[in-house]
């Protein structure tokens, strides 16, 4: 199937950058340590065993997890479709007999799985040499976490796809897109756990799909949400995925009639 082939290509493409992968792991790891010490300082200064339901061990695990997921979720932004529109390659993209959204999603999922395995796993493997982390107790717990991560990658993709569609309307989409990504690290709970937020900010943040990209899988992993709350969290994730997919398709259909193709 063509989508599976695209998935594989997305994965293989990343394999080519071996040195970059190693350098990337080192960087993510370094920032992980840095953030971990900030949390240690936080718990020391607050003189409390738990903050908003997170123990220090939870907070350190949160740090390791977010650093591990950061590339798979791609919180720093992604501009591939904007570039394709700019260079004019979009013409050949549109001529190909596949579903535009589906094709890009398949590729991105391949990339995401690669980053999960080669940028994420090493961080979780080496972090315990510095700090004690919590681990899921059962296979089913792991499975639910991974399922949540998978949905998170897809939701993140829909958001990035939507942002990239700006290029169909604006020549200078890159500048606007950068804005759209700025909120991602904060609203997704990558920077600080959403549980730490004051109530009104929590409310605002939960109106966006961002928490479903990072916060939900992390809370499932930590066991902050359990039982019914866990299934609700997964349900919300799925809901966002369906809603965002629908919006993407809608916007794409309008946008593709607008796009001005340059170059040749």
């Amino acid at each position: 199937m063509v989508y599976f082939a695209l998935f594989q290509k997305g994965f293989q493409r990343m394999l080519a950058y071996r040195a970059a992968t190693i350098a990337g792991i080192l960087t993510n790891f370094f920032f992980g340590l840095l953030r971990a010490y900030v949390f240690i300082g936080l718990y020391e200064a607050s003189q409390q065993a738990t903050i908003a339901g997170y123990s220090l061990k939870d907070a350190l695990t949160y740090t390791a997890l977010t650093q591990a997921l950061l590339m798979a979720i791609y919180v720093w932004g992604w501009f591939d479709i904007i570039r394709v529109v700019r260079s004019g390659e979009i013409t050949s993209e549109l001529l190909k007999p596949y579903h535009f959204f589906g094709a890009w999603m398949a590729r991105d999922l391949g990339r995401g799985i690669f980053h999960l395995l080669f940028r994420g796993a090493p961080i979780l493997i080496f972090f315990p040499f510095f700090f004690e982390l919590t681990w899921p107790a059962s296979i089913s717990h792991w499975a639910l976490f991974l399922l949540s991560v998978l949905i998170a990658i897809l939701i993140s993709f829909t958001w990035r796809f939507l942002v990239n569609l700006l290029a169909f309307w604006f020549v200078d989409a890159l500048g606007i897109a950068r804005f759209a990504y700025l909120g991602m690290t904060f609203f997704s709970g990558f920077m600080v756990p959403i549980a730490y937020f004051p109530e009104y900010l929590k409310f605002v943040v939960n109106l966006t799909p961002m928490p479903s990209m990072v916060n939900t899988p992390v809370e499932i992993y930590l066991g902050v949400v359990q039982g019914l709350a866990l299934w609700t969290a997964l349900g919300i994730q799925l809901g966002w995925l369906l809603f965002m997919t629908f919006v993407c398709e809608l916007v794409y259909r309008r946008g593709v009639q607008k796009v001005t193709i340059q170059g040749g």
């Binding site: 936080l42 200064a45 607050s46 903050i51 730490y196 004051p198 900010l201």
Partner: peptide, 8 residues
């Protein structure tokens, strides 16, 4: 937000 939970 971190400083909401600690003085310094």
């Amino acid at each position: 937000i971190l400083f909401l939970h600690m003085p310094a």
